[in-house]
Nucleic acid binder design. Structure first.
Lengths: 129, 129
DNA sequence: GTAAACCTTAAACCATAGTTGAAGGTCAAG
DNA sequence: CTTGACCTTCAACTATGGTTTAAGGTTTAC
C-alpha cells in the first residue's frame, strides 16, 4: 500500500503520516524500488492507536516513547499500564488546580454580591482571592 | 509617575506595561511634554486587577474586553459577575471533559489488566474507549 | 505528453503571552 | 560636553505543539 491509499483508508493526510514517521511515532516505512513508502495493513491499526492515545491526552512525544519505532518491538502491558496510570495522576492534578481556581472565582463572585450596587470593581485591588 | 517607577512599584517590567497598553488592557497613558508616559497611583491597582484576573484563568484578550481602556469608564458589577459566572461554567465544562477522559483511561487500564500477559497492545486497535 | 501521485527539505501557520533588539530622542551628573 | 540611564516606536524573536504548505524534483498512469 502506498501512502495515498493509507491516507485514504486511515483518514489522515499523507503529510501527517510522513510527519509521524519523521518524529518517531511510526517505524521508518519500507520502500518500494522507486523510493515510495510501502505499507501493510497493520499501519491502519497503528494510526488508530495513535489517535486513541492523542484523545486520551498523550502528547506526540509521549506516544513516540511508548510505541517504539522498531516494527517488531512492542511495548509491554506494564509499560502501557504505567503510562495510563501516570496520565490518570496528571488528570487528578489538573482537576485539583481547576477546583482551586473554581473556589477562588466563587469567592470573588460572593464578594461582588456582597458589595453595594455602585461599588467600583477596581477597588478589588486590595482584596486577595 | 514615569513608567520606570510604575514598573518598580508594581513589580512588572516596563516592557509588559507598554505591551498591556498596546493591547488594550490599559488606557492610553497620559503623556508628559517630552512624550514620556505619566501615570498616577491608581495604575498600580489596575495592574494588580489584571494579575488577579490572569490568575483566575482570564486571557489577556478577555481582560481587555472586561476592563475598558477608557480611564473613566468602569465595568459594572454585573459585567464582572457575569464574566466570573461564565468562567465558572467554562471550568465545569473543562472538568467534565477531564472526567470523561479519566473514565476512558480507566476503561483502557481495566482492559489491559484483563488481557493475558503476552497480549500485544497494538491489538487494541479494535477496541473503542 | 501531461496530469496526478509520490519524493525531500524547509518554512510557514495557529495561538498565547510576552521579551528583545534596533534606531533614535531626552535628561541628570560630573 | 559627554556619558550613561532612561524614554520612544516598531519589528522580530522566544517557546510550545501539531500540522500544513511550498518549492522543486521523480515516477507513474492514462
Amino acid at each position: 500500500m502506498k501512502i495515498g491509499e493509507l491516507s485514504e483508508r486511515s483518514g489522515l493526510p499523507a503529510s501527517r503520516i510522513r510527519f509521524y514517521e519523521a518524529n518517531g511515532l511510526l517505524p521508518e516505512a519500507a520502500r518500494a524500488p522507486n523510493g515510495y513508502r510501502d505499507y501493510d495493513a497493520s499501519m491502519i491499526g497503528r494510526l488508530r492507536i495513535i489517535d486513541l492515545a492523542k484523545s486520551l491526552g498523550f502528547s506526540l512525544e509521549e506516544i513516540a516513547n511508548l510505541l517504539p519505532a522498531q516494527v517488531d518491538l512492542k511495548p509491554s502491558c506494564e509499560t502501557v499500564s504505567s503510562a495510563l496510570t501516570r496520565k490518570l495522576a496528571a488528570i487528578e492534578t489538573h482537576m485539583d488546580k481547576l477546583r482551586e481556581t473554581r473556589a477562588r472565582i466563587e469567592a470573588a463572585l460572593h464578594f461582588m454580591q456582597s458589595q453595594p450596587d455602585g461599588a467600583e470593581p477596581r477597588d478589588m485591588s486590595d482584596v486577595r482571592f
